[in-house]
Design a protein around this nucleic acid. Sequence first.
DNA 1: ATCACCTGAGACAACGATGTCATGTTTCGA
DNA 2: TCGAAACATGACATCGTTGTCTCAGGTGAT
Lengths: 344, 344
Amino acid sequence: MQRGLVNPSRPRRPTMIDVARHAGVSLKTVSRVINGEPTVATELADRVLAAVADLGFRRNDIAANLRSSEVSRTIGLLIEEIANPFYASIAAVVAEIAATHNTMLITVSCEEDPEREKSLLLNLCQRRVDGLLVVPASQDHSYLRREVQMGMAAVFLDRPPGQLLADTVLVDNRGGSQSAVQSLLAAGHRRIGILLDSLTVFTMRERLAGAQAAMATAGVRYDTALVRDEVRAPADAARAVADMLAHPDPPTAFFCLNNRITVGALEELWRRGNDAGLVGFDDFEFAHLMPRPFAVIAYDPKELARVATDQLFRRIGGEQGWPITRVLPTHLVDRGIVDRGVAA
Amino acid sequence: MQRGLVNPSRPRRPTMIDVARHAGVSLKTVSRVINGEPTVATELADRVLAAVADLGFRRNDIAANLRSSEVSRTIGLLIEEIANPFYASIAAVVAEIAATHNTMLITVSCEEDPEREKSLLLNLCQRRVDGLLVVPASQDHSYLRREVQMGMAAVFLDRPPGQLLADTVLVDNRGGSQSAVQSLLAAGHRRIGILLDSLTVFTMRERLAGAQAAMATAGVRYDTALVRDEVRAPADAARAVADMLAHPDPPTAFFCLNNRITVGALEELWRRGNDAGLVGFDDFEFAHLMPRPFAVIAYDPKELARVATDQLFRRIGGEQGWPITRVLPTHLVDRGIVDRGVAA
DNA sequence: ATCACCTGAGACAACGATGTCATGTTTCGA
DNA sequence: TCGAAACATGACATCGTTGTCTCAGGTGAT
């Protein structure tokens, strides 16, 4: 039973065989023309191209890929969520570099769910992508070991893999945090409030460790009453700041471990006209338009993506060797408002 | 020559045949077990599953898809650039809805280049994605006609297709613009500066037309000296504002046709302490933290994406019928600063 | 006890392309 | 003028799955 007869409104896509018949040549000749092999007589090639145009033929990449199983020219990127500007800028860089390798990008968001992470990554493996870029949510990636052994390229970024050796690109979270707190200490602050998301996240643990190290080095007491975790949305940060300021011995400065928190804290301090010191980890767009001064520990997420993607394509290209870990530097940036003369 | 012997470091992936041999069953039985068909004796199924675990077998979706060419469970999304928050939030919604259909998303950015748009979309067709979501950059999509005829689902969003009939979801650019300008006129403004990106973009033409209509209705002269196009970056907007304010009969209000322009204009007016009226098309994050009051024509990009994606999956699901165009409403939102008492 | 029926399992073709090899034709030098 | 090399073309197997069909063996009704 021919499909063409069953559903005439949606014609079956022509295959190379149809083109061959239409042009009066063999299947293989069509294949040669489509793939630009030079050993075809001009006259035949023209007939084939005419048939291609006539029938609206377009090669089925799925079939081609199955036969010549070299590369699918597709890579996968796993992140938290694409709506987050941090990840969006990473995805942009990855897609751009991939395009130069004639490769498309499947981006999947796991939303901090380890189960989802696993199922998405294995699903990508089933689709036989050429490689994986992973910002992991879980701490156990042993389920990827076999895939990697069987040739799946994988590079982790922003956070390291767990139970798996793989190429990794990180940011110097600890060092950046250390210098953030050092700058507050140097300005004379001794009571520093620290706000963080969740300790289940690698970057948060590292940043907190850096802050503790800086305080220990300076001989300043690390008071757990001045530390709040599970601060997720900006509004949580605002509440935490208000809360800490009500403390009998309140902080005179705040260190926010990500930019969502920074925005919330900043908004609250600004609302109160409180001039506490404020340093946030991560820069962000519009930081220069915020209504009060603060500082950030900045680094380039694009560079992170660039280094990781380049490494991935090196592996896809067949580069052998032990997994490599690279740590990118951070730097302190003083961020003010558009015009500091605001109060004047 | 076996590949395993050529490159023993990267073992060949096991296929169903390997699993079948290892479990002492037929190929087809493996296929049945993998696909959860119920007609397999428990004892055999267990042997197959053990072999799968032993060998680290993972089904090749490419081959499966080739054989049973139903759906590839992949859709394509074409946008300008993923780093733009507007498109990132669209991509997030599309990916989320796609996930509920067990479908992954390939996002490609054409960066306003019509040639790139064409090649990317046709490339996606070659990959046999199940459907396309398109924010078009070009004005001629006749090259998609054959693909659509042959069953490729396609939905356009934010901007309409050219030379092609297809499902489309738009925003009421004209109406929104009209009410923006009406609000400025109602506040007594008669000289209104208009800043826009490029007239090659559909949304810009529509928004400008809406502004003109509002002025015509009110009997206010449309002075081309107060219109600037090719305003791309915020800095361009700042310059344009400065320039217009130097006009002998300067504008007392500005209408910015996108949010990048709004930010630049706002920054310049704030720097000058100028209290001109300001309305921008498109809301944006942090708008409520900006250092001076203004208004925006807001709409929900997520709703845009939701409606378009739902329609796409309806088409993928086989829904027939003529292409549909939907236009989503906008509304005016007064946006101020965190605390209007800033100057106090 | 016989036969129709059901069910589980395997053999084989098919999906749409590419790789390999064989074949027929042309070309060119001796 | 002939033979070998070079080239253009096609026949056929193949990639890793799933769909179709067949068949053996067990079940229940008559």
